[in-house]
Design a protein around this nucleic acid. Structure first.
Lengths: 247, 247
DNA sequence: CAGAATCACTTGTCCGAACAAGTCGATGAC
DNA sequence: GTCATCGACTTGTTCGGACAAGTGATTCTG
């Protein structure tokens, strides 16, 4: 939290949460805010653009900005790390590796990790829980250059992201998520201790370094009723898309 | 498409799709782009910020921007309207109203639509299909001031959003989506012609006008295997959040 | 030769200004 | 009283400039 516009964004968030700017009511004008915080209008605009992207405020040319809600959603930092997210919710995360082995990359691995088929990859199967109850089955495939660091992790490691950061300074930066629902297969049901055919929320994603190099791709399956995802979107900020077929 | 920075963003998207800037490779510098398009650096930055928010390119201070992918995802305009989205995919959308009646608002309605309990709301149950096959069950609750316009819609209306725009100029601007997976109940199964207990992808959302006034809230259930959602996120742009419990 | 220091380059932040485009209430005409 | 017009106000776009912060290749040092 160094940049002035981030500080202002955070102060505005707190002001909204305090009810200083009631839901449905107007936000002060850019001119007012720039005078209050003694910054230029451009800096204020950066701050309110952040809140607009978060879905907290609405914006229309010519009219005052409107407070849309004071819900505090988890930030993307918590999304990247299951453990950090659980901690922020006041719950304890667990994690256990069930299977871990190296194998040659198939066509899907090669495409997603931008490597050649046949190159070695590391496949990991983890179960993760909240307060002891299993809620998530994680199937990861790591690129070869990450395999050593991943294999050094303890089997009961709760925060993979944190451990890899501490170990080799790896930062998981970007992700692309595909969300759908599937029925639990036989293996899913056994490992998550649910009935076969139970609905699971599936998130498939590819994670890369800040430099754009793919680190891993994964297939996460959440037990229905334990976890939900929220997406806020607005005109001018459109991160969500819907796609048909090829599921 | 009037603003120069939007034009530049679109040209960059197309250039990436053409392979002019290969995936994993660097984007030209801001200085290069501002010279090429004869705009200031600030305008270029707005354009690349759009692509960054879309997850197409990565960005780190000090290093060149990196092309992360050339996937073309549907824009939010298509997301808002099932019919427009289907048309963009080259498929035909159908829609049919199964039930429509007015009733007093309960506590949940009141909270989500920011009205008082007991005020009249309009509840609508729709089935929507792609190429004739039912894929989506939509339960909507509209605020009273929208009810007349909704009731004027034909029962087989394919695009509610478009019809309401043509009719009364209503624009559905903002939305907040909660995504999870549920098992199909008896009614869900009958109306969607699937087996009871089949996994459904559930999207609950609240839609508001550009001025922040809630229009409707809805519970959409997609048949598994027909539709998926993609979310791109990156450091500095975090529209996705995960929440536990209270589902 | 390995590691540290340097340096050109790139992105991030911030400023001040000007004009365009749109909103919304007040005013005035009918 | 209703409607159109007007005008103050607000947000959107774009410019040009300046400096800070970080990267990566090169050069220098031990």
């Amino acid at each position: 939290m160094a940049a002035r516009h981030e500080e202002i964004a955070e102060e505005l968030r707190q002001a909204i949460d305090r009810g200083e700017y009631p839901v449905g009511g107007p936000l002060p004008t850019e001119t007012d805010l720039s005078a209050r915080y003694e910054v230029s209008r451009g800096t204020v605009r950066q701050a309110v653009a952040t809140l607009t992207a978060e879905g907290r405020i609405g914006s229309r040319q010519g009219a005052r900005r409107v407070v849309l809600g004071n819900r505090r959603s988890q930030s993307f930092a918590e999304l990247r790390s299951f453990a950090q997210w659980a901690a922020a919710m006041g719950r304890t995360a667990t994690g256990r590796v069930l299977d871990q082995h190296r194998r040659p990359a198939n066509a899907e691995d090669a495409e997603k990790l931008q490597i050649k088929p046949g190159e070695e990859v590391l496949q990991v199967l983890r179960v993760r829980g909240l307060d002891g109850e299993p809620v998530l089955l994680e199937r990861n495939v790591y690129a070869a250059w990450m395999a050593d660091a991943v294999e050094r992790l303890p089997a009961e490691c709760t925060s993979v992201v944190q451990a890899l950061y501490d170990d080799i300074g790896m930062i998981f930066a970007y992700g692309e998520h595909v969300i759908d629902a599937v029925a639990a297969g036989a293996e899913d049901a056994r490992l998550l201790d649910i009935r076969r055919g139970s609905p699971l929320l599936r998130i498939r994603r590819v994670t890369t370094t800040p430099a754009g190099r793919p680190i891993e791709w994964s297939d996460d399956r959440y037990v229905s009723g334990t976890v939900s995802f929220t997406v806020a979107n607005s005109i001018g900020s459109n991160p969500l898309a819907r796609q048909a077929g090829q599921i």
